[in-house]
Design a binder for these strands. Structure first.
Lengths: 208, 208
DNA sequence: GTTCTCCTGTACTGCGAGTCCAGTTGACAT
DNA sequence: ATGTCAACTGGACTCGCAGTACAGGAGAAC
């Protein structure tokens, strides 16, 4: 396919890689344009400033994550129409996909932005917020459907449960980055899967 | 007590607050010394460079977290000698402590460092790594003791379960920062508590 | 052959990190 | 009283990077 991505996409590719490796501030425009093979002026032609770059990166990242979730949980639902089983399959697929990434998940642009807050304008922060809320809503809806059919073993706040998917992933990415391990993210997703399984699987207490 | 912390501590206090609000790079030495009321030269008298500041902040943060865990899980164990119940009490206490922080948890220096990697030298990264591994070991040991007495309902990787405590906390802090909510961190810790409860509580399948 | 998009090149401002170093101030020691 | 040491101040400097300004070029599209 694309032997040549357009320059703007090329910049985003290079920038994303560098930012996830080193942090946003630590990535200079100088090195980005060197890697892309354009001039500094060329960069500023495409992006007003670094803030615009951050915004574009975030938008792209959020879209990609949404597409990944659509794909994984869509496929899972096709495999099994039961909402609980679909969720469990989806989480397993997700863990597999994340484990198969060549160098482990590179990190989350959302968290990167969260920890370098002041660099970004309100728009960027708002974008970030909306993405997290959308994921909460997405997973909450899925858990609601499950909870209707399978009463949870413990009382549970479905918003918190929805947040847990993004939260566990974010946290695991941090751990993975710090530890330099490749398996951590998948392992944590599988822990979450076990939780969901236990929470919604039919069972009876051992004692009356 | 301390009407006057010494200057070095004062710098660390001011810097930690600023860094967690804005990110490390976005915090200038200029504004730190202005807030502390010393000169730039005064700053460099105490810290060789910003890296030294980061290292000192990390060390302090890790020590404080360890002290918090010692306190919370120590108290929990005093309240109940059963390892599972102590863990459940400890997680509840932890959620309460974190929820009671005035402005929510300010963020995690570990994650902040993880996402601004290149700024720091190997020593800082190693420090970070050791802290995460120490927490893994700490919680793993607690879960091992629990698993001996209460066979887990699902096969579980105890390292991953140990990591989950720091991981869920890290992830929740990110969510909380992005969402601007105060309850997220406590809610996520309570989700983890529910997972632990379900995983280790005695039960029997509903059908033969 | 004009116009538009996508650049290049140069030259500039301004900020913040980090260095160097000379000098000050107050406490404490002898 | 004298010396000395830790904890600073102040000023001057270098360097790297973000961002601005603007003039101009190369190629496709009409």
């Amino acid at each position: 396919m694309s032997g040549k991505p357009d320059t703007k996409t090329h910049i985003l590719n290079v920038a994303e890689k560098a930012v996830l490796e080193k942090g946003f501030e630590a990535t200079s425009i100088e090195e980005i344009v060197a890697a892309v093979g354009i001039s500094r002026s060329g960069f500023f032609y495409h992006f007003k400033d670094k803030n615009a770059l951050a915004r574009a990166m975030l938008e792209r990242y959020i879209d990609a994550e949404n597409a990944l979730f659509d794909d994984v949980f869509g496929r899972a639902r096709e495999l099994n129409d039961d909402p609980l089983h679909a969720m469990l399959i989806g989480l397993k697929l997700l863990a597999e996909v994340l484990a198969d990434l060549p160098n482990g998940h590179p990190g989350c642009v959302i968290a990167a932005a969260a920890y370098q807050d002041r660099l970004f304008d309100r728009g960027v922060r708002e974008l970030n917020r909306e993405a997290i809320l959308a994921w909460r809503a997405r997973f909450r809806a899925m858990f609601e459907e499950i909870a209707e059919r399978y009463p949870p073993a413990e009382p549970v706040d479905l918003d918190a449960l929805g947040d847990m998917v993004s939260g566990v992933a974010e946290g695991a990415i941090v751990l993975q980055k710090v530890l330099g391990e490749r398996e951590t993210l998948a392992a944590q997703i599988l822990q979450l899967r076990t939780y969901v399984k236990l929470l919604f699987s039919p069972r009876a207490p051992v004692s009356a």
